[in-house]
Amino acid sequence: MTVDDKTKVPELLANLKELESYQVAVGILSKSGGQMLMIANVHEFGCSIPVTNKMRGFLAYNYGVHLKRDTKVIKIPERSFVRSSFDNKSNDVHKKGEDLIGKVVEGTLSARAFYELLGQTCADTIREYMVNEVKSPANSEMTIAAKESSNPLVDKGQLAAAITYEIRGR
């Protein structure tokens, strides 16, 4: 007697084991460089910058902005784009993940491809959210004039372009 196993359980277990061997990191990753990480952190969490005499001179000379003598700190407000995109768009990403995991279970998508597609989905979601949905707090008039745009998180597009993902082994 010959038994023909059509359940594909061994293949399913192998796919699930491979799935456990990876993870995906998404956001402004260290390969983007220290300046992009600093800019991302300032926007994500906000920042208070102590005003110096050198800064006063720079702003006056370059922008015609004369700070009041009692101005001791310039506050950059929080404009979360990573956390808030997760809070507002996680259902969409979870749905995409569920669709993709079904393909891994079926054996039509590799674990590596699952993480590639999920990472790209997450990066695209954050990028789209930051460009199209983060509108407040608005930039100051000086900032709008300097960058010729009122979008709080977009100047030349470098920050949005730095949002990426990488697949890592566990």
Rank of each mutant, 00 (worst) to 15 (best):
K103L: 10
M130S: 04
G46R: 01
E98I: 09
E18A: 14
V82R: 02
V104I: 07
M36Q: 12
L109C: 08
E11F: 01
L109K: 08
I126Q: 01
S110W: 00
Y115R: 06
S84C: 00
D92S: 12
K75H: 11
M1D: 09
R69L: 15
I39R: 04
T143S: 13
F114N: 01
D99G: 12
Y165G: 10
V51L: 14
V73A: 05
Y22S: 02
M142Y: 14
F86T: 03
E20M: 10
E98Y: 15
R79F: 06
M36P: 02
Q35T: 02
I74F: 03
K96Y: 08
K103Y: 04
H43G: 07
K68D: 15
G157C: 00
V3C: 04
L67T: 12
G107Q: 06
I144P: 02
I167V: 06
I76K: 06
A113R: 14
N151Q: 10
K54P: 13
K54S: 15
L13H: 13
V9P: 09
A146L: 09
M55H: 10
V154L: 04
H43S: 04
D5K: 05
K95L: 11
M36L: 14
E133F: 00
E11Q: 09
M36R: 03
I163K: 00
N88V: 01
E20I: 11
A60N: 08
K147M: 03
K72A: 13
E148M: 10
E11V: 14
K17N: 11
S32N: 11
L13T: 14
N15C: 00
K75I: 15
M36W: 01
T108A: 04
A161T: 02
I39P: 03
T52D: 07
M36A: 06
V73T: 11
E166W: 09
A40M: 07
K68C: 12
P152D: 09
V51F: 07
S136F: 03
G46Y: 08
V26S: 05
E133V: 00
M1G: 13
N62M: 09
L159E: 00
P10K: 15
F86A: 01
C122Q: 07
E98D: 08
G119A: 04
